[in-house]
Design a binder for these strands. Sequence first.
DNA 1: ATGCTCGGAATAACCACACCCTCCG
DNA 2: ACCGGAGGGTGTGGTTATTCCGAGC
Length: 411
Amino acid sequence: MVYMCDFCGEQRSIVYCRSDAASLCFSCDHSVHSANALSRRHFRTLVCDRCNSQPAFIRCVTEKISLCQNCDWLGHAGSTSASRHQRQAVNCYSGCPSSAELSTIWPFVSDIPSVGDSTCEKEMSSMRISDKSVTNCGDSLQSKDGQDVSVLVKVNDVNNIDKSSFWMESSSMPQLNIKSKIVDQPVGLANSTSSKMFCPGTKGPAYCEDDGFYEDFNMDEVDLNIENYDELFGIALNNPEQLFGNDEIDSLFGVKDMPGADLKCQGTRAAEGSSIGQDNVVQPACSNTVFADSVMSSKTEPNLCFWTSLSFSGLTGESSVGDYQDCSASSILLMEEPPWCPQCPESSLPSTCRSDAVLRYKEKKAARKFDKKVRYASRKARADVRRRVKGRFVKAGDDYDYDPLSQTRSC
DNA sequence: ATGCTCGGAATAACCACACCCTCCG
DNA sequence: ACCGGAGGGTGTGGTTATTCCGAGC
């Protein structure tokens, strides 16, 4: 069955835009995402060649098809022979790259139509070329005329990766025993091992920072350059809270108390495991049902983007779901529970243990409070001591039922 | 398949008043 | 150009009310 473009309904859908939750043909993708600056930020990838409904994140070189997470698992996890298939990550892009640039991103796609240079590209160049996040990331792609079309790619060979390594930028974690190597690296791409952490499947700081949602993330505060990994985590590995603080860690992960969650987590958590001499730290995320559940149940939480972008500073609850959807992590987070989880042999935690963990998680979640920016400390100080009636401020001298200072009632 | 009810979660509204900002003389 | 006063708008937190959404029937 041929799936048609959600927009025109005439051409075969090729590109998937998660922000729009739409499968588009190249032509409509170009026209739709050249509409305005926001739409140009949408990250698109190929549509899964198998289910035609999910964004592809893996290219099976052997079968010459692009697969979503689900289909990749179903197709490659089952049989030994299939699991040996050579696979590579499917790149994604934002902006309006030309057909030539698309060919560079997806050299295996043969039917890329000609989409000439448009005003969109020009606007994109003005918007993104100077974007330091792109240059910092090192994943930008230079077009012939030197314009950065903000093509962000992941170039790691993903052979042998398991589901958990999909969650992380494995090659960026030097202390982890990830069997990955770089193959088929597109021209103009920086070595991913030298890049900073970025969103798996898509890519990180460039995108996230660009989104405004992460604008409070200050790299100067915590230098997360992987080159400083030892310097960074060498101190914090044994106790990441030294780096981020207890509350921030709790707030970020929300699953701190969950058994088994620590070492399944990516980023600092995984690094934490590596620091204590666990070579095989990377385990399938599905190895812990609780963890998977926690992730899925937290799919609308902004801090989940931390998993993939390390954008953990100054996150508040102000961002909309759309922001998360724009985050590449959404390809995972917004999905339903992966079908491969039930297949995992380690998912047999005792139900009581699981329920306890879930309970702790929910309590933690409830207790968690997103940082609220207080513009005027003096006003806050006053509000903190102001007497109230049913939560409302009362006039000075009036009866009150709540006094923050004395915790007593006047009546 | 559809509609209804229920419960939980998320969000908005409310209150007083010190402080901030703008305007004007 | 600078200063000071007047006046209006803003922001602060705990509680309640309202809205939203999913599950179950």
